[in-house]
Design a protein around this nucleic acid. Structure first.
Lengths: 232, 232
DNA sequence: TCTGTCGGAATTGTATACAACATTGTGTTC
DNA sequence: GAACACAATGTTGTATACAATTCCGACAGA
């Protein structure tokens, strides 16, 4: 293993990542109150750090901060959900095309690895993990496309998509993204730009049509029992 | 004037806005060190608030925070500059089209007002203000398009564009955005979607071609004398 | 003069203390 | 019994104190 730098890791970032993962894996449901003291206890850091982490997550709209009220896991409205997928439709097909142009053999391997893991998570019935991995797949494509700026946008869209799926997914609809992803990888591996772009576009359409965008009530839950992440 | 709520204004937000404005108006040059104590003194707030504001600006990449080093006004590389304009080219034409579809008479008035102010700023030779107003024009179009999500992306792109202009603008190139903006307003007022989209696209191309994207050295400057904003 | 090391000063990272505000429960009044 | 007022409690907003790290200049040696 290669870890030349010991670990200049940042407490704020660690907390933000832990919370982000918990949200992505649907262990923290939309609407959950995120008390500062509570989180500070769980991760053994001060409120200063927790606040910074929460603000960071608020910026990517994973949590919503209400002045004097606190932070809550974001609860995207149907309208926001629509907007997120419109934005993805605008950004991701082009990005997939770029990825098809630039992908190296190593990139392809990474993508295949992702698809395999997704498949495994699905087989395990671990839906949270599957959703998270699926998101990472899209982010990986943006990385391959070598578009830092657009890639960041896509990251925030993926994050919010995870919440949207938690809220609006039709349970009767089969969540078999791995097929679409597999086809995408093939197109990228073949450097078939047009195909990659088209596949991504239709993949997003499919995703969108598996949603049932009607209002959902905001339900608040407790928190502590949902964070078993072993406090760093 | 209508101000029913007294002013639930947030100290962090005020500092962030003040700094943001200073950067947009090119009173703070790229690379400038933003010391926490220093800013705290200027605006009479504690470092806690300043830190939150700086992190907020770091999220939109107006400032760059280096661990244990501090915050600096961002200094976009030529590569980042290219990416920013690529992203704008991807997002803004479509947004202009939507704006043409949805704009009301009131919206048109607001846009015309913007163009007039830009013109005035240019006439005064106040370039900083002109750049800032020009950015606000683009943001206003996103607002009219009623695309909150994409609008936010555009906001961050505009912000970075301001830095890019500060760094890479060819001084010999005439900065007459108000003409392009005027034509755009007309297309939007006419609800001519295709024209609005095309005009926006070519406007961005023009902007881009007025840049000289070669490396610039990072020059650090002092700070205090550049912030005459009367400390709230 | 150049180089490298050491120590003090300055700055940032984190924790804690206090102030401001919101919420909730209780008691009083009608 | 319902509605309001108000106090008690808890949570967030801000300031300050302390720890950790970096920066910068002095100084010694080559």
């Amino acid at each position: 293993m290669q870890k030349p730098p010991p670990k200049p890791t940042d407490a704020t970032e660690m907390v933000a990542n832990a919370l982000s993962l918990a949200i992505h894996e649907h262990r923290l449901a939309p609407g959950t109150k995120l008390g500062e003291d509570e989180i500070g206890d769980v991760y053994s850091v001060s409120r200063t750090v927790v606040r910074a982490a929460l603000q960071s997550l608020a910026h990517v709209q994973l949590v919503e901060i209400q002045r004097h009220k606190g932070a809550f896991v974001a609860h995207p409205s149907p309208r926001e959900a629509r907007e997120v997928f419109e934005a993805r439709a605008l950004l991701e097909p082009r990005t997939a095309r770029s990825a098809a142009t630039r992908a190296t053999g190593r990139d392809i391997n990474i993508l295949r690895q992702h698809v395999t893991e997704e498949h495994a998570a699905m087989a395990d019935g671990d839906n949270g993990r599957a959703v998270n991995l699926s998101g990472l797949f899209h982010i990986e494509i943006a990385r391959i496309a070598d578009q830092e700026t657009i890639g960041r946008f896509i990251e925030t869209l993926i994050a919010r998509s995870s919440l949207i799926i938690a809220l609006y997914w039709r349970r009767e609809s089969a969540l078999c993204e791995s097929h679409a992803h597999h086809a995408l990888v093939q197109a990228i591996a073949d450097a078939d730009e047009q195909n990659a772009e088209d596949l991504m576009r239709s993949h997003l359409v499919d995703l969108n049509s598996a949603l049932d965008l009607r209002e959902r009530p905001v339900q608040t839950r407790s928190l502590r029992e949902l964070l078993q992440q072993p406090a760093r």
